[in-house]
Design a binder for these strands. Structure first.
Lengths: 200, 200, 200, 200
DNA sequence: GCCTAACCGAGACGGTACGTCAAGTCTTAGT
DNA sequence: ACTAAGACTTGACGTACCGTCTCGGTTAGGC
């Protein structure tokens, strides 16, 4: 269910893992990420900085990408779709939150690298999609469906398209172009897409 | 102007470069890219397969990313904005061409890696933007401006947003999700965005 | 007195050691020694094969060398100098027994490694000399002294030299050259050395 | 022909190996051997001290044992059998030279480890036998054969036995017991063995 | 019938070294 | 000046063991 794999299999055998160790590793990864970037990041360096053996890292994460992913995106599961009744306002809130998360220095530093490593590994891409994006997308999709039923949106299969257009634009700005999005740009984007959907 | 750097400095001294060598290197890069992915690609392997010294490669490209970029995206400059008078049809044509290019196996294999390597190098990101994206974006922007003047689009600075929304969605589908876009999805996207712009 | 160290300190407190555990460990060591050699032997592997925790091994032996030594050479103390009156026959008997012990597959596999590990540890070398070689050497020396008194050997300090020549030749054949000694070669050796001593 | 393996195959292709590099590596190995012993020696440490990449070492030697062997025993080929007419004096000279070589601190530190590593590798043991011991043994054997023809030794196949007894005793003293041999002990050994052979 | 202490298995932990791979630079001989 | 080959230093890879430690749990004798 989790993107983490090396959970201990048997229940309570052996010395239990030190929970602080994990925090130290993740923090070391973030620190190094911020001052060297993803490419300059190595498991060795993380281990060195965290004061930890390499095995201790490999015991927990299968690859640099998974480790950095966990170090970078954490609040994922807590995010949920707001529902104020005003669809456009809710979408704006959601995208602003997305921008907030993707616009953080650590996310900017980490995302392209993670994407590249996940690109060659389908399982990892699924992880990303399921763990990180799916929750948002599902909440959003449900909200759109609901809006459709309420008559706020015309019926049709535009839901997925809206999601991809909103998410894609944000990704594009941050990952490809490296240009942050101002709040008014977010509002403009939501208006553009939502009006387009309404006009269908 | 070009992302290629190591042009011979002095004029015509010494043995001239073998023009076939370049082709062999690019072909080797493509071959290896297709069956191992970007991460499994190394200058050494390319040199080995092309039957070429490593120096010969380093003389021509500054990095793996630049080499792969050139090997992957070539028809770039030749593309231009169609102008049939029907804006929506023209946009559809353009995005279909973009999808065609991004959807090719070699582009799918190369893009995330190139992006990651460019992400940490601002100069390289500019290269990408200028060489690859700017020509499209500029043509598109001009076309939109023209449409605005013709009264086919309401006045306002939505041009850049439209471009980012269109490009971003394609990028998101191919690079992040790994899902190809069908022609009808492209048409849906163009309609969504354009109608949104019109409704502003 | 013994090369084994970690005997329980306090008398009979706590759960007593399971005597079978020791046997299982030694057996595991022998098995692994026979199919992988001394170098491929690790405490971890022994523990794994014996179904035992590593601590259980470290509680009993200080090092791999000590463990393997005990696993390999066991009948040592029981051997004693034969005394039939015929010195040459007795020596032959003794050396044949030595050859028997050194020629066993497990001894061949273990000896060079043990020697190497003991080489850097003077205390361990003494252990080897005292525990393993000294009993033989002493019995032999006494026997030679006796022969001297009986007039079967000329007086002089050749005793130790004889011992080293006999032991060294066996060692050289098995450890250095890896060539087994046939019984007739053993007889030849004893004759050579003893006649040499008599001719002094 | 040589125990070194990774000689360049093709003739004069590529950058030639720096001859000084080899010397630096061997010297580093000797230095570390002398103050830490064979067991504490690692390829990494040698590379570090020699200021050399690990690959540069692996390019030249297959294993630590081969490298140390070359670093330790070098004058091998130059040694030859003296022939003064006096067999016993010649043997004494030879064994004194052997003692000299095996008694050096570096040889004492290296030999047990080399032997152990060679023990599990038959090819390496052959190397040792052929490269190092065979030249001595052959010269010695020829000399003994000659002595036999001259009537200085009784006819018979005692040659090999004599060689093993002499060499074995020296090995035993240095490698197993760690006891140096004094010149008078060497003389005693030669006398013992040679008189034994004469008495046959 | 507890208590205490040692035993035991499992496995986490910080290390060190392994042998391999690729990076980018340099140095040959030859074109 | 170009080329192919390959030596060179550097540094990271992922794995294997080292010897120590920390758990839950067992097994005895002494109180």
């Amino acid at each position: 269910m989790s993107y983490r794999i090396n959970m201990p299999i048997k229940k309570n055998q052996g010395r239990p893992r030190d929970p602080q160790t994990e925090a130290r590793i993740l923090q070391a990864a973030i620190d190094l990420l911020l001052d060297g970037g993803y490419a300059a990041l190595s498991i060795e360096a993380i281990a060195r900085r965290a004061g930890v053996g390499k095995t201790t890292i490999y015991r927990r994460w299968r690859s640099k990408a998974e480790l950095v992913y966990e170090a970078t995106f954490t609040q994922v599961d807590e995010r949920c779709m707001p529902d104020s009744g005003d669809l456009m306002a809710d979408l704006e809130t959601l995208i602003l939150a997305l921008v907030d998360e993707f616009g953080s220095p650590r996310a900017i530093a980490a995302t392209p690298g993670i994407l590249a490593d996940f690109g060659s590994d389908p399982a990892f891409r699924d992880t990303l999609r399921d763990q990180f994006l799916a929750p948002i997308a599902e909440g959003l999709e449900a909200r759109l469906k609901q809006a459709e039923l309420r008559g706020q949106l015309p019926p049709g299969a535009t839901g997925r398209l809206i999601i991809h257009a909103l998410g894609g634009t944000v990704f594009y700005r941050y990952v490809v172009l490296g240009l942050p999005m101002r709040p008014d740009e977010v509002r403009g984007l939501v208006q553009l897409v939502l009006r387009g959907a309404l006009a269908t």
